[in-house]
């Protein structure tokens, strides 16, 4: 899933400063799962904003709404009936949701309330960790199911950098060395021959380096 964290309150107050009436819009998908921008977080931020602005002597009307999926134009359409009443839409969805709403309601300022962080999974309650960098050409089958791009600090291929120590990455003792994990898993799977096969320098065109990406499925077009 896509993970996010709410922006610092100071930044949020600053960004809504010019407005008197806003619509705070959450999303029911990833940001709900990582507790950053679901219905509950929308309610919490809405009351913090109302109270804060009241204290500043510049009351702010905040209405709340949470869409099923903000990155889907079909759901973003639900805002059409009400959106005209507001000075701005404040989105608690990831960057994809914010942009879907901004694209649909061109004349209205749409402000992000969360910082979108990474594609990851939940390690345990309250902890999410990066797992995929969306490189567009997955190598997990060759690396024991552990991603060297998302999980190695230097994003290197073909083995560790030389700074790996006792299974930890040289950037911090709290970070596992991805290449140690890869090696351990390949041993466990009896696939160490994969490690000795040198992978060719990656073709980064499939990743973000080749420019903004799109997926076009002719078979899905109506």
């Amino acid at each position: 899933m896509i993970t996010a964290e709410r922006k610092p309150m100071e930044e949020i107050f600053h960004s809504v400063e010019p407005y008197g009436k806003i619509l705070l819009v959450g999303c029911n998908e990833c940001v709900t799962v990582c507790h950053a921008g679901g219905r509950k977080e929308v309610a919490m931020l809405a009351s913090a904003l109302r109270m804060g602005r009241l204290k500043q002597g510049a009351p702010l009307t905040v209405d709340e709404m949470t869409l099923e999926r903000q990155c889907d134009p079909e759901y973003a359409e639900e805002l059409a009936l009400v959106v005209d009443q507001y000075d701005a839409v404040c989105s608690m969805a990831c960057g994809c949701g914010v942009q879907t709403v901004a694209e649909r309601y061109q004349g209205l300022p749409v402000l992000p309330m969360v910082n979108t962080e990474f594609m990851g999974s939940s390690e345990k309650n309250g902890v999410w960790a990066e797992r995929c960098a969306g490189c567009g050409n997955c190598v997990l089958g060759l690396t024991g199911g552990i991603c060297p791009i998302a999980r190695c600090s230097k994003r290197i291929f073909n083995g560790p950098c030389g700074g790996s120590s006792k299974g930890k990455c040289e950037i911090s003792p709290d970070v596992d060395c991805a290449w140690q994990l890869i090696w351990d898993r390949l041993k466990q799977l009896g696939q160490t021959e994969l490690y000795s096969q040198i992978m060719a320098p990656k073709d980064w065109r499939s990743a973000r380096d080749g420019g903004p990406r799109r997926i076009v499925r002719e078979d899905m077009a109506i």
Binding site: P201, K202, D203, W204, R205, A207, D209
Partner: peptide
């Protein structure tokens, strides 16, 4: 260019 797979 002539090494299109390179990282920018």
């Amino acid at each position: 260019g002539d090494q299109p797979g390179a990282k920018a």
